[in-house]
Write a protein that binds this DNA or RNA. Structure first.
Lengths: 329, 329
DNA sequence: TTGAAAGCGCTAACAA
DNA sequence: TTGTTAGCGCTTTCAA
């Protein structure tokens, strides 16, 4: 079949250990032997077999990344952050799709464990976390991202959702708005719950009563945003400004407005959580809460790596990253 | 360390071969032994070590996917197609980012080979393909997607770019437009070149002379679209309709129009290659050429799998998928 | 239907 | 500085 370390050893008239030392840059080797072996490697066209190496070293230098959806700029920006950070250390990333489904998530976890990844980063599909016990049993390092789950304590990277939406709403109030609609995601998700909390806290702190009719919940998707914006605007006295708690709902809301010929000027304004590349071109958006997506990813990667390298610091370690207010006002 | 097949064998008082047969669903095994072993597996909490298995079987059931950018709905929709198809067969996907850079692409290829993936799907970073020779030497199955490269023959999945843009432009001509601007990508890329060719052919066939001033090339990115749309609109006699040859340039063009307060009605219209979820909400878009992204991915996966399974059909096998015209006119 | 044993390609402990 | 060798956890051939 293919060329092995043994072939190289024979060809160069050295031992396999010597060849191994050369390919691992072991310093205890003479310049001369090293050159000879390198030459042999080249001439025989030898390639390292990472599988054999992993079997021996108990390390695959591969980690898993499970997220609810693949073509999704939010999740993939985090994935990029993970990848960029990990590749510095020679790691690669198996990206898996849970399809927002706990069962599939469970499947993927099993598969990744079987593949002996060194650790897993998960953006949970739901708030259900019982199946994560499998990871603990397998002694697999994990970092949760964006959301926490029930029944499972784990290292995690989150953003300061409450403060992010608090500040956004506060900013709007200071701009003179006191009827601010709210469109949010399923409050079972950490992020959705906290963002709603930031909204209510700000209103409370400024003595503005909550208006039930202009507060709406759905899922975090485009369709959810579309449907809720429709409800919002079709009622008798729609608010002049709506705070929307993620990017995809924002997109859905804009979709509704465009399809229904709302003007790009001041008929209705949108503030929202998330600031993606396209957010600013949607035209209704006046204020956004930016999450540092790449940083979320790189931070998660760092946490995971430290656990892989044996860091036993008290569990769970939760990192909360700051958000940033973006406005053209 | 962890529980191995040996532990299970000892615990169940059978041989390791028997345990192996059980976990591989080998039929030549009695119901009774099978049950006994299953019980042992459960009680000891045994987990398969895929690395050891891979070393023995020479198969990792993992494939690599290299693309120029990760947070990119076009590439990731293809990736999802790949993933969905492959997971049926127990495969998983390592997603790598070439950053549109030949050097990084080369690095990733090496890494994937070292990890002994069973095959690689690549959306090439550029038209440069010399470094792909490494794959041939390593005997690694490859499928190229979306673009071909120089100096390297390979299985590939592409769409019918020429016909796609031909039909779009033809449709516009039949709607009465005879001044159609063109904004395209770097013609070194297969897709960019072919889409321009479709445009010119259609104009030729309908005896409309090419107008140099309203034909512009840049890169396939948002900024490219923005800059070229600016050039397009700032000249003396801008065309009433522009054909833009990919999604991201389309986004950039819209960005320019919005920022410069173009009205959402008929001041200027856009037709474009690609039909993404957001395309229809941009407001200027009247016609789009839809690529079947998921299908591109699943087809690429199928091609790759067949090569992995030893299919020696004449190389290269090129699959051209059809596009579809989307319009609300 | 089951078991014994070789060996996949590599690393690392130990010896020289 | 280099070599010998055991063995990582599994599959698979051959024999029983």
């Amino acid at each position: 079949m293919s060329v092995t370390i043994k072939d190289v050893a024979r060809y160069c008239e050295v031992s396999t250990a010597t060849v191994s030392r050369v390919i691992n840059n072991d310093p205890r080797i003479s310049e001369k032997t090293k050159e000879k072996v390198m030459k042999g490697i080249k001439e025989l066209n030898y390639r390292i077999n990472g599988v054999a190496r992993s079997l021996k070293t108990n390390r695959t230098r591969t980690i898993g990344f499970i997220c609810p959806e693949i073509p999704n700029d939010f999740f993939m920006s985090i994935a990029k952050g993970v990848e960029d950070e990990l590749k510095k250390y020679g790691y690669s990333v198996i990206i898996c799709n849970s399809n927002e489904n706990t069962e599939e998530e469970k499947e993927r976890i099993k598969l990744l464990c079987e593949k002996c990844v060194d650790g897993i980063i998960i953006i949970p599909a739901t708030d259900e976390g019982r199946h994560f016990k499998y990871l603990k049993d397998a002694n697999m390092p994990v970092v949760l991202v964006d959301r926490l789950v029930e029944d499972f304590q784990s290292d995690a990277v989150l953003v300061d959702n409450i403060n992010g939406s608090y500040c956004a709403v506060e900013y709007l109030i200071n701009k003179g708005y006191n009827r601010i609609g709210f469109i949010g995601g399923d409050v079972k998700l950490t992020s959705a719950k906290e963002r709603f909390e930031g909204y209510t806290r700000a209103l409370n702190d400024y003595c503005i009563p909550l208006e039930k009719d202009i507060i709406k919940f759905g899922d975090f998707h485009i369709k959810g945003g579309f449907d809720l914006m429709k409800e919002m605007m079709q009622q008798d006295n729609p608010p002049p400004l709506v705070f929307i708690s993620n990017y995809f709902m924002h997109v859905g809301a804009v979709k509704y407005l465009i399809e229904n010929k709302y003007k790009l000027d001041k008929e209705v304004l949108i503030a929202s959580f998330d600031d993606m590349e396209l957010s600013s071109i949607f035209g209704f958006s006046v204020l956004r809460v930016r999450q540092p997506m790449m940083e979320i990813g790189s931070k998660a990667a760092q946490l995971l790596l430290s656990r892989i390298d044996g860091d036993k610091t008290a569990y769970p370690r939760i990192v909360r990253l700051k958000t940033e207010l973006i406005t053209e006002w």
